[in-house]
Deep mutational scan, measured.
Amino acid sequence: KEQQNAFYEILHLPNLTEEQRNGFIQSLKDDPSVSKEILAEAKKLNDAQA
């Protein structure tokens, strides 16, 4: 469930490039146990690119 939530949120971050988004999603698939950390990174990058 946590992985699904992170997946959904990353898909809807407006400021990520397609490449960045795909990278985060691939990381989620590779290691779902760190989905919280991956989501935090994605949000940080999204904010930095706002």
Rank of each mutant, 00 (worst) to 15 (best):
D47M: 11
L11P: 02
N15Q: 02
L45P: 00
E18H: 11
Q49D: 04
K44Q: 10
Y8H: 03
P32R: 06
S35F: 15
Q3C: 02
D47K: 11
S35H: 13
Y8Q: 04
I38M: 03
I10C: 01
E19D: 09
Q49G: 10
N15Y: 08
I38T: 13
I25R: 04
I10S: 01
Q26M: 09
I25Y: 07
S33L: 13
G23T: 15
N5S: 12
T17N: 09
E18R: 07
Y8A: 09
I10R: 01
A42T: 01
R21S: 03
L16A: 00
I25V: 11
G23C: 06
L13W: 04
L16I: 09
D30Y: 07
N5V: 15
S33P: 07
A6I: 04
F24W: 03
K1W: 12
F7M: 15
P32K: 07
Q26I: 10
N5E: 15
R21C: 04
I38V: 06
E41I: 13
L28G: 01
S27E: 14
K43A: 03
A40V: 12
D30T: 14
P14G: 08
K1E: 15
N15S: 07
A40L: 09
Q3L: 07
E37P: 06
L39T: 07
D31M: 13
G23D: 08
F24A: 03
K44F: 12
Q49V: 09
F7L: 14
L45E: 08
H12V: 11
P32F: 09
I10D: 01
K1Y: 14
Q49Y: 09
E41C: 05
A48I: 15
Q20W: 01
A50E: 10
K44D: 13
I10L: 07
I10T: 01
L16N: 00
K43V: 09
E41H: 10
K1C: 08
N46H: 04
S33Q: 15
K43S: 09
P32L: 08
A42K: 00
V34W: 14
E2S: 02
P14F: 08
A6K: 05
H12L: 11
A50R: 02
K29C: 03
S27V: 11
E2T: 03
S35M: 14
E9H: 10
A42L: 01
K43R: 02
K29Q: 10
A6P: 06
N46L: 01
G23A: 12
L13V: 01
L45I: 09
D47W: 06
Q26S: 10
K29S: 05
Q49E: 07
N46Q: 03
Q49R: 02
D31H: 13
D30V: 14
N15C: 05
K29F: 09
Q20F: 02
R21Q: 07
V34P: 05
L45C: 13
E41S: 14
K36E: 12
E2K: 01
I25M: 09
Q26L: 11
A50H: 13
Q20K: 02
Y8E: 14
A50K: 04
H12F: 12
K44H: 12
L11T: 05
E9V: 13
D31T: 09
N15E: 06
L39Y: 08
Y8S: 04
A6G: 04
F7P: 02
H12Q: 13
Q26D: 10
P14T: 12
Q4C: 06
L45A: 07
E2N: 03
D47Q: 14
Y8L: 14
H12A: 15
R21M: 08
Q3Y: 15
E18W: 10
S35I: 15
S27T: 14
Q26W: 08
H12M: 10
L39R: 04
E37S: 08
I10F: 03
L16P: 00
Y8P: 03
N5W: 15
K36C: 04
L39Q: 06
H12P: 01
L28C: 04
D30F: 10
G23M: 13
E9F: 12
Q3P: 15
Q49H: 07
Q4Y: 04
L16M: 03
P32G: 06
E37V: 08
A42F: 00
Q3S: 03
Y8N: 12
F24S: 01
H12C: 04
K36H: 06
R21P: 00
Q3H: 10
L45N: 05
L28I: 05
D30S: 12
K44L: 05
L11D: 07
E19V: 11
E41R: 07
A40G: 09
L16C: 00
E19S: 08
L11R: 07
S35A: 13
T17H: 04
N46C: 02
A42R: 00
K29D: 09
V34Q: 09
L13R: 01
P32C: 04
Q20R: 02
D31Y: 15
Y8D: 08
N22A: 11
F7D: 06
T17V: 01
S33N: 12
E41M: 10
E9P: 03
Q3V: 03
L39D: 00
R21E: 01
A40R: 15
S35W: 15
I10H: 00
L13A: 03
E37K: 09
A42Q: 00
P14V: 11
L11C: 07
K29N: 12
A40P: 02
Q49A: 11
L13M: 15
A48W: 06
L28R: 00
N22E: 11
K43C: 02
Q26G: 08
K29L: 15
N5T: 11
T17M: 05
Q26H: 10
L13P: 00
E19C: 04
E41F: 08
V34E: 10
A40C: 04
E18K: 09
P32T: 06
L28Q: 01
S27L: 13
K36V: 10
L11A: 12
P32Y: 07
K44C: 03
D31R: 14
E37I: 09
A48P: 03
I10E: 01
K43T: 08
A42D: 00
K36M: 11
Q49T: 01
I10K: 01
Q3N: 15
P32H: 07
E18A: 13
N46P: 00
D31C: 04
I38C: 03
A48L: 15
N46K: 01
K1D: 15
Q20D: 05
D47I: 12
S33V: 06
S27W: 11
D47G: 10
S27F: 13
E9N: 12
E18C: 05
L16Q: 00
A6Q: 07
Q26P: 00
K43I: 07
K36D: 12
D31P: 02
D47N: 06
D30G: 12
E37D: 05
Q3F: 15
A42W: 01
T17S: 04
L13E: 00
F24I: 04
A50G: 14
I25A: 06
T17Q: 05
E2Y: 03
K44A: 05
Q3D: 15
K36L: 13
D30E: 08
A42E: 00
Q3I: 03
A40W: 11
L39I: 12
E19N: 06
D31E: 13
L28M: 13
I25E: 03
H12Y: 10
L11K: 07
Q49S: 10
A50P: 07
A48H: 14
A48C: 04
E2P: 15
Q3W: 15
P32A: 12
